[in-house]
Each structure stands twice: as C-alpha cells, then as structure tokens.
Design a protein around this nucleic acid. Structure first.
Length: 470
RNA sequence: GGCGCCUUGGCGGAGUGGUUACGCAGAGCUCUGCAAAAGCUCGUACACCAGUUCGAUUCUGGUAGGCGCCUCCA
C-alpha cells in the first residue's frame, strides 16, 4: 500500500522489514483528562490504517502507549507533571487519575470500534526499560546532568531536527517560554527528572541519578524498541508531534541503537473547531460524551472522520456531523436489505458484490483515501437500495458487508433485524394497503415510525429501514 | 522573526492539464392512495493577478486571506 511518509515528504510504498509482519507504534494519550474529538480523529485514522494493513494480508503488531507519568505541562521540560496536576485538581492521587482516564479511554476506543492494539503499554510499567535506555545514552556520551535532571545533549546528534526540517539556529526558542539556564542547548530535553527535594510526588522511582521520574519522550523510545525492535515499520502520531516529540524520539533511539528508528512516519493532521485548533488553553475540546449527549452515535463520529483525509486539516461542526449521520443512515438502510431478500430483483446492479470490498481496499491503499471510498460507497448503496436483494444473493451480500466492516468498522453486519412484533406491523400495514384501507395503513406506518422503522413502498413490496440505529 | 501547510458551489469534501466526484442542506420533477430520510434533475464551484500552454481549477511566479509549528496539544 502507498502512504505519505513524513520522513521523505512524499507518498511511498510501504516497505516492510519482516513481511508479512508489519510493526506499528502509535503515540497514545496522556491520561490526565477526557479525550476530545481531536484525539478520536487521530485514533480512528490509525485504526483505518491497521484495518487496511490487515486486509492486505499482513500480520500487524500494533503497540500503543499510555502516558501515565512524566508529561509536563510544557515540552520545554518546565512546569508541572500533568498527572500530578490532574490529581491536585480532582483531589485524587496521580495513580487514581491515570487509572480513571485510562479506563475511560479504552471504553471509548471500543465504542468507536477501534481495534484493540496488540499491546497497550503504560509508561509506569516500563520504568526499568526507560532507565536502561538512559544508561545506554549515558554510556555513549549523549547525556549530561544538571540540578533538576538528566538531559539529552542534542548537539551530540548532528541529524537533530532533520526530520522536522527544523532550522535550529533560526528557531526563537525561549521567546515564549522561559528556558532552563542550565541547559546546554535550547533543544535539549529531559530524560530523567529529579523529584523536588522539598516535596514528595505520587509517582517517583529510584534511579542511578536519584529519585525522580522519566521524561516524556523516553517512554516511547523504550517501549517501542522493547516490543517492536530497534527499527519499526510505521510510527504514527498527531502532526503536532513532528517538531518535538518525534524529533526527540529519533534522537534518543538512533543514538542508542545506531539504527533507523522507523522507516515510515504517518501523521494525522488536526481537526479544527470554529477554525481553531482544539487545545486546553481554548477549552474547546468536544468529548465523545458531548457527541452522544447531542444524539449522535460513536459510529456517526466515525463516519464523519472517514469523510476527510487524514493529511488535511479537517473541520468539525455539528452541522457536518449531522451530515455524516444522514450518510450513515443510508448505508445502514442498505445493510438491512439482507433481512429483506425478494424472490426476484427488478433490475441489475452494475458491479459484482464481491468486488465492492476490493474496490474499497484499492482506495484505502492509495494513501487512505477515505473520502473516495465514501463516494464509491454512495453509488453502491443507491443502486442496491433501488434494486433490492434477491434470495440467492444474500450470502454474497453478507460477505460484502463483512468485508466493508473489516475495512471501515461501521458494524453493518451487527445491525439487528426487526423483531416479530414489528414484522407483524409491517405485514398488517401492507394488508391494509392492499385493502385500500388508507387510514389504517397510515396509522400503522406512524406506529412503525414510533418504533424507529420507516417503510418505503417499492414495486416489489414494502422495504423497511431503521431511522435510528444504536 | 523563522519554518511549513492551506484557499473548490450554502456546508463538508475528493479529484483532474481539456470531459458533472460524492454527501448534507436547498429547488424542481417522478413514482405513489398518500408518502418516503425513495428515484431523477438542477444550481453552471474551483481566492486574486500574471505567466507557460491550442487549452489551467489542475503547472510556474506573485498578491491577499487563513491555519499550524517554534508554549500547552491528537
């Protein structure tokens, strides 16, 4: 498959180190607050990547980290630890905060039908791995110690900043944030932060350098290399990670191993709300709970994400979410045709059912072109809703739905049939209609609508669909 | 100040050197007992100014506007 590679700045064919296995690492959440739709855009896109890789016959080994320690409120390694800050805010320990938001995150992943990563790894479970990696860097001369911790000396890594095309000398580091005067270079970052002498942290560990906690960047390098080896196939993350987090990961990992850290880098662009980025400081984060409270399902949001390309700066609005919901309802109306097979169809569709998932896969293989997938699907849906499904087509039709579900995660095959009561109402209405008892027929149609079922009278008989699918 | 990206019809959003993507919303029509979240049709979109070209929304240069990163952040 072809995928844009931040490393080369062009669409590359993905080359694997050990086919048919593909190793993927995704920078996961920092679990100190609710995830917002920006996170979900990113993780749904990662999920689409994984689904596409699997559909290509590859065996995925997917690692996602949970940052539950060490992520400071400033990437310049100043400020508070987010977990400790969250703990103060909520009157809990940092451990409790982390556990709460980790559980919530995983529950939301399930609701959004994001596949479960092969390994979900917590930073706090891998302190030793991180300490070991820092030791290696220390032995190789990439570190120095100052009063508040162990730092990586970026001047020792000549390629530092190449990945993000950073012109270090031109950066105005420190313009907006006070720099630690002990740091040798503005871009140097903490590998191990020492606990303050006058206070005890909820989370702290012993280390050769003293009691403290790991820097934010070291966890991804340590866990990635532990589970996936020195070099991995695809590293994913939000686009904001390019200049700092991923730049630092590369510096640490490649300095330690002497090998390329990742062959392919995929970055999800941001989603804008009211033409602005979602951020803590603007307090404009819409959560999955907010989405559900407005009457939308997690799958509505999922479809909305598929409507845009992961590389473009996308926009979120309630209006476009409503649009996505309508679009999904049409697709879902097609899916329940499998319960409504007819003796014969009035016409033919212009495609083979078995080709539909293949066609979708082709589009996904082209740099995850999900908008084109939906355009194509729209044609498929329209034709099938017009023509209907014949009895001997049901197996092929269900295979098609299964193929689409694997790729798009829309749970089309999980949509329930109407129960016997509703089926009876449908039959009664049709009977009344045939008897030209229009009043009764319309009454029954309304009764069905109250049960979220809409009826369309086709030449071949009534066809139902759900008007709200949970 | 430095670096990078973007600008498509009311909204979202693909794509292409010459031929209507697609969806939502809107308008008209059709089927229908009436309907339909059904079907069909429509709006004659590609920021602006130059250049290259037989021909540019698509390439090049510039202008304007927006956004992102260099704080937090997916």
């Amino acid at each position: 498959m072809n995928l844009y590679n931040t490393l080369t700045r062009k669409v590359d064919e993905i080359k694997l180190l050990n086919p048919p296995t593909v190793t993927v690492y995704t920078c996961g959440p920092t679990v100190y607050d609710h995830a917002h739709i920006g996170h979900w855009f990113t993780y749904i896109r990662m999920d689409t990547l994984i689904r596409t890789l699997k559909a290509n016959g590859l065996k995925t080994n997917w690692v996602m980290n949970i940052t539950d320690v060490g992520h400071l409120t400033s990437d310049a390694d100043e400020g508070e630890d987010k977990l400790e800050k969250g703990a103060k805010r909520e009157g809990k320990t940092a451990w409790e905060v982390a556990a709460y938001y980790t559980d919530e995150f995983i529950e939301s992943m399930n609701e959004l039908n994001i596949l479960e990563p092969d390994h979900i790894v917590k930073a706090t479970d891998h302190i030793n791995d991180q300490v070991d990696l820092i030791k290696v860097l220390e032995q190789k001369g990439f570190t120095y110690v100052i009063s508040d911790g162990v730092y990586y000396d970026t001047s020792k890594f000549p390629r530092y900043g190449d990945f993000a095309k950073l012109d270090i000398d031109e950066q105005q580091a420190g313009k907006r944030v006070e720099l630690n005067p002990e740091k040798k270079n503005p871009t140097d970052f903490a590998l191990w932060k020492l606990s303050p002498k006058d206070s005890k942290r909820d989370m702290e560990w012993d280390s050769p350098w003293g009691k403290g906690f790991p820097g934010w960047h070291i966890e991804c390098s340590a866990m990635s290399m532990k589970y996936l080896g020195d070099t991995l196939d695809i590293h994913c993350g939000g686009i904001d990670h390019i200049p700092v987090h991923h730049t630092n990961e590369i510096a640490q990992s490649e300095a330690a191993s002497g090998k390329p850290f990742a062959n392919h880098w995929m970055h999800s662009n941001h989603v804008m709300v009211d033409n602005q980025k979602i951020s803590k400081s603007l307090d404009n984060g819409i959560t999955l709970e907010d989405v559900k409270a407005k009457g939308y399902t997690p799958l509505d949001l999922r479809l909305h994400v598929l409507e845009s390309n992961y590389r473009s700066q996308s926009k979120f609005s309630w209006e476009s979410l409503a649009s996505a919901k309508q679009r999904l309802l049409e697709i879902q109306a097609m899916a329940v045709l499998r319960y409504q097979a007819k003796p014969e169809s009035s016409d033919y569709v212009s495609f083979a059912l078995s080709d539909v998932p293949k066609e979708v896969l082709n589009m996904l293989n082209n740099d995850l072109n999900t908008p084109s997938v939906l355009a194509y699907l729209s044609d498929v849906v329209t034709q099938l809703l017009t023509v209907g499904i014949e009895g001997d087509m049901v197996d092929h039709f269900e295979d098609m739905l299964a193929g689409l579900d694997e790729l798009l995660g829309l749970k089309l095959l999980e949509i329930k049939d109407i129960d016997s009561d509703i089926r009876e109402l449908v039959a009664k209405r049709e009977e009344a209609r045939l008897n030209k008892d229009w009043e009764e027929a319309d009454k029954l149609r309304q009764a069905l609508l109250d049960k979220n079922v809409a009826i369309e009278d086709k030449a071949t008989g009534p066809q139902w669909r759900w008007v709200a699918v949970r």
